[in-house]
C-alpha cells in the first residue's frame, strides 16, 4: 500500500491526504465555473422563454420525450456506476472499481449514440431553425436555437468526460496509475456535474408544454 501512496504523491505535497483535499477543492471550484457557463446558456433560455411563452410551449411539445427520458435514465445510472467506481478505487477494491468504470464508459457511449439518433430524428422532422423550420410560432426558432446549442455543448462535455474516464481506467487497468490516486475522484466529480447539468436540461427541453 505504501508503495502505492508514494507513486501517487505529487510535488509540492508532503501527504497524499492533503493532495487529495487540494484536488477535490480545485475540481469543485472548476465545477462552479462550469455551472456558471451553463448558467449563461440557461439565462438565454429563461429570457427568451419569458419573451415568448407560447412559442416555447409549442416547441416543448415537439422534442422527443422518449429519447429524453431514456437518456436521463442512462445518465443517472452512469452516475451511480461512477460513484461506486470512485469509492471502490479509493478503498482499493480493484475488480469492483475497474468493472464500475467500464460500465460508465459503456453508458456514456450509449448516451451519445441515443443522442445521435435523436438529433437525426429532429433533423428529419425539420426542427433545425433554418430555412425549412416547421413551426410557425414566434420564439419557437429561439427555443430550438438554444436546444441545439445546449445539447451540443452538453454532449461535448460528456465526450470530454468519457475521454478522461477512459484514459484513467486504461492506466488503472495497466497499473501505471495507482488506484489511490486522487485523479479518480476528480474524474468522478466532473462526471457527476455533466449528469447534474442534464438533470436540469431535461425538464426545460423535454417537459415544457406537455400539459
Amino acid at each position: 500500500m505504501s508503495g502505492d501512496v508514494a507513486a501517487a504523491l505529487r510535488e509540492p505535497w508532503d501527504s497524499l491526504r492533503r493532495q487529495r483535499e487540494a484536488a477535490e477543492f480545485g475540481v469543485w471550484i472548476f465545477l462552479g465555473s462550469e455551472a456558471l457557463l451553463f448558467a449563461g446558456l440557461l439565462l438565454a433560455f429563461a429570457v427568451n422563454r419569458t419573451l415568448h411563452p407560447a412559442g416555447f410551449a409549442a416547441s416543448g411539445r415537439e422534442t422527443d420525450i422518449v429519447f429524453g427520458t431514456v437518456n436521463t435514465l442512462v445518465l443517472l445510472t452512469s452516475s451511480l456506476a461512477m460513484a461506486v467506481g470512485s469509492e471502490a478505487a479509493r478503498a482499493g477494491l480493484r475488480r469492483l472499481a475497474l468493472r464500475a468504470l467500464a460500465t460508465v464508459l459503456l453508458l456514456g457511449l450509449t448516451f451519445l449514440v441515443l443522442k445521435g439518433f435523436e438529433w437525426a430524428k429532429d433533423l428529419r422532422e425539420q426542427l433545425w431553425p433554418g430555412a425549412g423550420f416547421r413551426l410557425a410560432e414566434p420564439g419557437a426558432r429561439l427555443f430550438f436555437g438554444l436546444y441545439w446549442t445546449m445539447t451540443a455543448l452538453h454532449a461535448l462535455h460528456l465526450a470530454g468526460g468519457l475521454a478522461v474516464v477512459g484514459w484513467l481506467s486504461w492506466q488503472g487497468w495497466r497499473g501505471t496509475r495507482p488506484l489511490g490516486s486522487p485523479a479518480f475522484q476528480v474524474a468522478a466529480l466532473y462526471w457527476h456535474l455533466v449528469d447534474v447539468v442534464w438533470i436540469l436540461l431535461y425538464p426545460l427541453l423535454y417537459l415544457g408544454g406537455r400539459a
Binding site: L37, F38, A39, G40, L41, A44, L153
Partner: peptide, 13 residues
C-alpha cells in the same frame, strides 16, 4: 473563476 465562464457562454452563443 466566477465571471469568466459567463463570457465564454455569451461568446459561444
Amino acid at each position: 473563476v466566477l465571471a469568466t465562464p459567463v463570457l465564454a457562454a455569451a461568446l459561444l452563443l
